[in-house]
């Protein structure tokens, strides 16, 4: 008998269940790309059969961090850059949970970059959505790790001397096993990609272009977008690492030249961290969290370890 009956519950799910009763209307600016992520999630979650009680949405800090204030699931709004370590531990403690982590580009590729690299490397079974608006929004428009070279802001008054980070390439090199880029201006694709990412067994990384009309570009600047799977101009095998790498490189360059290339860039069937750890005997087959509610569970004692000390 499970102590977590929401997990694996089979029933009809209405997307409105994912609208927060207490805070139905987000505080994001009009025209903000973050609405696109929220909408895509609300559509994707019922589609893949997940209920609000079995989803844990873990966010960082920034406008994107408010996601779980407006998405009705279990939520953990953590600290700047640290959504991934919190999220992956929750998944380790109870891998029945559907864990979705989210944060901005500064959160994920800047202050939390180390966690991004290692969570991808370990291939934790979870979805990570990076709200990439190429700027720090909530602190009023400073240059971020994805801001293009030359970007002017109050912290770079003469223009940014740094080249932007390459988020897709970084995900690939680090070891993510599902890598996609979508955009708020492309709601159908966004929903589909989020659904695929949730269903993927491993670390799914979505670089989600969320325009920031207040401090950076508005929605029009992400149009027209090109879906690399649908366009005849691009032909590559998403399961081929080298081809994926070339495609990512091109997409990252193109963004700063005004062409928005989106779609799936890489998929790999490498076993998830949880599965590998279980196979090595480094993680229980049954969720650890269940054991604390099992009245018949036998708990080991240090008393039985004393032989080596006597």
């Amino acid at each position: 008998m499970s102590a977590f009956n929401a997990i694996g519950e089979e029933r009809e799910i209405d997307r409105e269940e994912f609208t927060a009763d207490n805070e139905p209307q987000p505080t994001w600016c009009p025209g903000c790309g973050d609405f696109g992520v929220l909408k895509a999630l609300k559509q994707a979650l019922p589609e893949v059969g997940r209920t609000p009680d079995e989803v844990l949405t873990v966010t960082g800090i920034g406008c994107s961090g408010k996601l779980n204030s407006y998405l009705e699931t279990y939520g953990f709004h953590t600290i700047h850059g640290r959504s991934l370590p919190v999220a992956r531990a929750a998944k380790l403690a109870n891998d029945g949970l559907e864990v979705i982590a989210a944060g901005g580009d500064g959160d994920g590729y800047g202050i939390g970059g180390n966690h991004f690299m290692h969570t991808a490397r370990e291939n934790h079974d979870m979805t990570y959505i990076v709200f990439n608006n190429e700027v720090f929004g909530l602190t009023k428009g400073q240059t971020s790790p994805t801001s293009p070279k030359g970007h002017k802001s109050k912290t770079t008054p003469h223009g940014n001397a740094k080249s932007p980070i390459r988020p897709l390439s970084l995900g690939l090199t680090s070891g993510a096993t599902y890598i996609a880029r979508t955009a708020a201006v492309n709601p159908n694709q966004a929903k589909e990609i989020i659904a695929e990412a949730i269903e993927h067994d491993g670390f799914a990384h979505i670089d989600f272009l969320t325009q920031c009309p207040t401090w950076n570009k508005d929605a029009r600047q992400y149009v027209p977008y090109v879906d690399v799977q649908e366009s005849e101009d691009y032909d590559f095998d998403i399961t081929d690492r080298e081809q994926a790498q070339d495609m990512m490189f091109e997409a990252e360059n193109a963004l700063h030249e005004g062409t928005v290339l989106t779609g799936r860039f890489f998929v790999d069937e490498r076993p998830s961290y949880q599965d590998q750890k279980k196979d090595l005997g480094e993680m229980p087959r049954e969720p650890l969290a269940e054991r604390y509610f099992d009245e018949d569970a036998k708990w080991e004692r240090s008393y039985d370890l004393l032989d080596r000390h006597t």
Partner: peptide, 12 residues
């Protein structure tokens, strides 16, 4: 942060 996440999900 992992200790926090694991505890949040129900582990000691």
């Amino acid at each position: 942060a992992l200790a926090v996440g694991a505890s949040h999900a129900g582990a000691k």
